[in-house]
Nucleic acid binder design. Structure first.
Lengths: 340, 340
DNA sequence: TTGTAGGCGTTATCAT
DNA sequence: ATGATAACGCCTACAA
C-alpha cells in the first residue's frame, strides 16, 4: 500500500486497495467509458472505504480545478452577499466550488486579484461590478470563461453579462416620485471609474432620461460622493441644509440612501414630508421599520443564480455570448409615501 | 522556446529566455541560496519581460499554494465582512491570497466546505464561528494550520483562537443597563449548536453572570430564536407585547437588535423610554441615526488582523498554540440612554 | 475492458 | 554557483 507524504489516500492507494490499475480509478472518477459495472463497484467501494477525494492541484495540472473564482470589490454591501447566495444555491449539487476573492479598494487592486485567480487555474470567473477598463475585462475573458454581474456590455462576444435593467430601475424611482407630485428630484451618485457599462453610470442615465420624460430637464441634478459612508453622509448633509433643498433624493444604492436617512434625521428633516428618499437594490435593511426605505428591487440573488447558470453553460461548451437583463421592481415604503 | 498549452509562460520558458536552467529560475523564485547576482538579474529580467507568474497548481504538487481558506457560514452580517477586511489588510504585501468559502446553512454543510479547502491544499485556514463539534475542529487543525475566530477553546493545543471576551461583552451591556436603573433585563439569543465555546453561549453566560452580580438572578430570562430575521422579529414582537414586558433587551448581536428596534417601532413602543435595546458587535449600522443602537464593540477588523498574524506565525514555524482575547468596549447611543 | 506510460509545471536533491 | 533529474497526483492516449 502506497504511503503518501500528506497522509491522504491517492489514486494509487485506491487502485491498490481495489486491486485495479490507477487508470481504472481515474475512469471511474471521470465517468469515462470502458469500465465494467463490477470494476466500478469495487473502485467505488474502495473510494468510500478510504475516504478518498482527488487532489485539486493534481487535477489542475491536467485540466480542471472545479473551482470558480468570484470577484468582488467590497462585501459590506449586502447586495454582494445576496449575489453570492444565489451563486451558492445554484452550485449546490454540482462539483464546482465557488471561492470569493475581495479586492479591497486601496489594498489589493482588482487586476492583481484576477491574476491570483488565473494563477490558481479557476475554471471560470464571476466578476461583480468591475471597475477596471473594458479592455482588461475582455483580455481576462479570453483567458478564462467569465461572467460579469453588475456590468453592462451587451455587445460583447467575449463574455456573458447578467444584470438588472439599471436605467429602468432609476426610471421607476423617478416615475414614482413624479406621480406623487414631486418635481425637484435630485440624485446622489458615487464617484466611480467612468465606464459606460458601470451601474452608477446607467442609473444616472435612467434618472436623467426619466426627468426629461416628465419635462423636468431643468431640475436635473446629480451629485457625486466618494464611496465611504462618511462622505455620503457629508454630501447629503450639505444638500439637505440648502435653502433650495430638493423635494426628493434618489440615491444610487441603498447604502447611500440609508446614510441619507440618517443625515435627515440628524438635522431634523422629516422623511418623507420634507424630503422623500429612495434607494436602489432593495436590500434587507429597507424592510426594517426604522428605515422603511422605498427601493427598487434588483433581485441580487437572481443575478447570482443566473450568473452561475451562464457559467455552467459556458463550461458545458456554449461559445456564443449571452446577455441577461432582469426587470427591476419598485417597492414603495414609508420613506416616499404620502401617508408616511 | 517551449510553447505551452495554456499560452502562459512556464518556468521553462523563462529558463530558455534567460539562457539558464529551470532550477536556476526556481531558486530565484524561492529566494534560495546559491544564485549569483548576475544570474538572478538575468532571470528577474526575463520574468518581467515575459510577465511570468508561477502556476499555483504545480507548486501545490510540491508543497505550498500560498492560498488561505477563510470559512464563514454567512456573510450578510457585516461582522464577517469586517473580519475579512482585517485579514485582507494584514495580508497585503505578503504572497498569500485569502479566498472565502461560504457554507450557507442548509445548502453546503460546513464539513464539506472544509473538505473542499483541504482538496485545494490551502496552506492554512481561518475559520469563523464554526458550528460543528469540537472534535471536527481538532481533526481539521491537525491536517492544516487553522486559526479559529469567534470560537473559544483556550485550552486547545491543536489550533490558535482569536476572540473578543464575549462574556465580558455581555457583562458590559448589563452593567450599563443596570447603571441606568433598569432591572428587568431580558436577553434575545439564538438557536445555535450547543457548543461550550460558541459565541452565543458565552454571551448568554456573561449576561447571566452579570445579572447575578447585580442581585437580579430572579429576573434572568434568555429567549432563543432561529437565525432568520423574521424569526427574530416574531420573537421580539411576542416579548414586547407581553404585559410584563422587560425594561431592556440585550440582543446577542446587532442583527437581532436591529430587528428588535424595528418591531418596537412597528408596535409603537418607544426606545429607549419604554424599552432599552442593546446589541453586540458594534457594526457600522449602529451609527446611523435611525438606529443609534448602543452596542459593544468587538473589534471585528482587529480579530481578522490578529487571525492573519497568528496564521503567518504558524506558517513561519510556530508550533505551540496561542489564544488571543481582545477587550470589548461599550458604545452608548440613543437606544439605551436616558436622554434618548 | 483493462493496464502501461508519459507528461502537466514546479521544487528539492544531488551531481558537477 | 549551476544544472540535470526525480518526484508530486492525476489524466489520457495508446497498447494489450
Amino acid at each position: 500500500m502506497a504511503i503518501e507524504r500528506t497522509g491522504r489516500p491517492t489514486i494509487r492507494t485506491v487502485a491498490e486497495d481495489a486491486g485495479v490499475s490507477r487508470s481504472a480509478v481515474s475512469k471511474v472518477l471521470c465517468n469515462a467509458y470502458g469500465v465494467s459495472p463490477e470494476l466500478r463497484a469495487r473502485v467505488v467501494a474502495s473510494i468510500k472505504r478510504l475516504d478518498y477525494r482527488p487532489q485539486t492541484a493534481a487535477r489542475a495540472m491536467r485540466g480542471r480545478t472545479f473551482t470558480w473564482g468570484v470577484l468582488a470589490s467590497e462585501i459590506h454591501n449586502p447586495f454582494f452577499a445576496d449575489i453570492l447566495s444565489g451563486i451558492g444555491r445554484k452550485l449546490e449539487g454540482t462539483p464546482y466550488q465557488p471561492l470569493l476573492g475581495v479586492s479591497q479598494s486601496s489594498h489589493e487592486t482588482e487586476s492583481s486579484l484576477v491574476e491570483a485567480m488565473l494563477d490558481r487555474q479557476m475554471d471560470g470567473l464571476i466578476w461583480i461590478a468591475p471597475r477596471v477598463t473594458s479592455d482588461i475585462l475582455h483580455a481576462t475573458a479570453r483567458l478564462v470563461p467569465t461572467v460579469f454581474v453588475a456590468y453592462h456590455e451587451a455587445g460583447s462576444e467575449d463574455f456573458d453579462t447578467v444584470n438588472v435593467d439599471d436605467e429602468k430601475a432609476a426610471q421607476l424611482a423617478v416615475d414614482h416620485l413624479h406621480s406623487m407630485g414631486l418635481r425637484k428630484i435630485s440624485m446622489i451618485s458615487v464617484n466611480w471609474p467612468d465606464r459606460v457599462g458601470a451601474v452608477p453610470h446607467l442609473r444616472e442615465r435612467g434618472y436623467a432620461m426619466a426627468m426629461r420624460g416628465h419635462g423636468l430637464q431643468d431640475l436635473i441634478e446629480v451629485m457625486h460622493s466618494e464611496e465611504s459612508a462618511v462622505d455620503v453622509g457629508a454630501l447629503t448633509a450639505r444638500v439637505l441644509s440648502r435653502r433650495d433643498r430638493p423635494e426628493a433624493l434618489l440615491c444610487w444604492n441603498d447604502a447611500a440612501a440609508l446614510e441619507a436617512l440618517s443625515e435627515a434625521k440628524r438635522v431634523g428633516i422629516d422623511v418623507p414630508h420634507d424630503v422623500a428618499i429612495i434607494g436602489i437594490d432593495n436590500t434587507a435593511f429597507c424592510r426594517l421599520e426604522q428605515n422603511s426605505l422605498t427601493s427598487v428591487d434588483v433581485f441580487a440573488e437572481g443575478l447570482g443564480e443566473n450568473a452561475a447558470r451562464m457559467l455552467i453553460e459556458r463550461l458545458d461548451g456554449r461559445t456564443t455570448a449571452k446577455h441577461i437583463l432582469l426587470e427591476p421592481q419598485l417597492n414603495v415604503r414609508r420613506s416616499s409615501s404620502k401617508n408616511g
